[in-house]
């Protein structure tokens, strides 16, 4: 579903990614783990088009998308819930969600009706968002904002969903809830690429995992493989 081949990208003159390659099969949950600064978030940003890769290929459903503007890639069916959540603070929860479905809703009128089914699905997943549907997103707590960010990505009915650090800065009880949701989405057949600093937790849900080191993939395999790999255990799972 998503294939990254020999990707190079960075900010200004410094290259953060130096030949990253990874594959996400349809219906799979893939974890991307590694130390701070290894290039996990940069990989996500380069895939979704927030930064333009300088070399390499990104294939979404077989179609090359590298170098396209982020909005174009999003309309092709890739949803990226970015690091730091980035909800639209001055808009209501419901408007945030409807904008998440921008790619398949009518632009002018009747968008509420057309988006009703997707909204119901997200509200079913996150009852707390339903309670707060009229509230401004900026006034939500960190955990609620994270749910909103995930819900907003879901609204797009994406082919692939990128989740960047969904647990960042959240209390453990909320982190558990986030991971429960990821499990449920996986059961529904969602394809996901997950960046996570809680490597243990990420490996619990993932079908496959890639370990990044200094801008490229150092090791990859099934979670079971990685748990047997002494080097990985020492560095990331200790």
């Amino acid at each position: 579903m998503l294939e990254v081949k020999e990707l190079y990208a960075g900010y200004g003159l410094s290259e953060v990614l130096v030949g990253t390659s990874l594959t996400v099969e349809a219906g799979a949950v893939v974890a991307l783990i590694g130390a701070n600064g290894a290039g996990k978030t940069t990989t996500m940003r380069a895939i979704s088009g927030m930064i333009a890769p300088s070399r390499g290929e990104v294939l979404l459903d077989g179609q090359p998308v590298q170098g396209l503007p982020a909005s174009k890639i999003a309309r092709l069916g890739l949803a990226h819930s970015p690091e730091g959540r980035k909800v639209f603070a001055p808009l209501s929860v419901e408007d945030n969600l409807l904008l998440g479905a921008f790619r398949h809703l009518p632009r002018f009128f009747g968008f509420r009706k057309a988006g009703a089914a997707d909204l119901a699905h997200v509200y079913d997943l996150f009852p707390r968002l339903a309670e707060r549907r009229g509230q401004l997103a900026g006034t939500l707590s960190g955990g609620e904002q994270q749910m909103l960010a995930i819900g907003r990505a879901l609204m797009a009915r994406p082919k692939v969903m990128l989740l960047d650090e969904p647990s960042m800065g959240l209390a453990p009880v909320i982190v558990q809830e986030v991971f429960r949701t990821i499990r449920r989405l996986k059961a529904e057949g969602m394809t996901m690429l997950l960046v996570e600093q809680f490597a243990q937790a990420a490996l619990e849900v993932a079908d496959h995992a890639f370990v990044m080191e200094r801008g490229r993939i150092a090791v990859h395999g099934t979670p079971a493989d990685l748990r047997r790999d002494e080097r990985v255990v020492a560095a990331y799972l200790g």
Partner: peptide, 13 residues
């Protein structure tokens, strides 16, 4: 599914 139980503070990155 729970992350490494706090109070193990240092995240397992």
């Amino acid at each position: 599914a729970a992350p490494p139980a706090p109070p193990a503070g240092v995240p397992a990155t």
